[in-house]
Amino acid sequence: MAKELDENITSVFQRLLPFAVSALLLLFSYVPFDFMFLNSIRPAMGMICVYFWLQHRPDLFNLGSVFCLGVLDDVVTSSPLGSNIFELLLMYVLVNNTSRFLNAKPFVVLWYGFALLALVTMLSRWLIVSVYYSQFLPLSMLAFSYMATIAVYPLISLLLAFVQNNFIQDDE
């Protein structure tokens, strides 16, 4: 009985872990740093987490998790409510439709894949928010944010891989 309960708790913990880690990383990405430039160029942490978990553990990171992460991102920022949700949902759709090309590929291929999908999602959001404000938003800021996102992807995926390997058991 106790063993069963223990297994259940472990199972719930493992199911919640990808979302919990992603939410923490997302909040951490908004912590102000005293280093110059670091606060004005922030990586899109939510997008990195969604891409990573959908590539590696889609069974533990479903549509609901993607939506909740988008809501959290929308709450912390002051960008139009719903725009972060849209971005992450679009990433979800794109990853699901490209997973057969990227599944079980070397890291570099996954990185390139992320660079491509992140470009599409960020540009789509840029377009939607530009329509929302009836004015084009500065593309230079978007470019910096995109480059920062691509640059930190290996580091964040290393961290997430550590979580996956050490705290989440394989299904088999």
Binding site: L27, Y30, V31, P32, R42, T77, S83, S145
Partner: peptide, 15 residues
């Protein structure tokens, strides 16, 4: 005390 900052193409705010 500023606890969160964000500034990208979509918004510039702080908490």
């Amino acid at each position: 005390r500023v606890i969160a900052e964000e500034g990208d193409a979509f918004s510039h705010s702080m908490i």
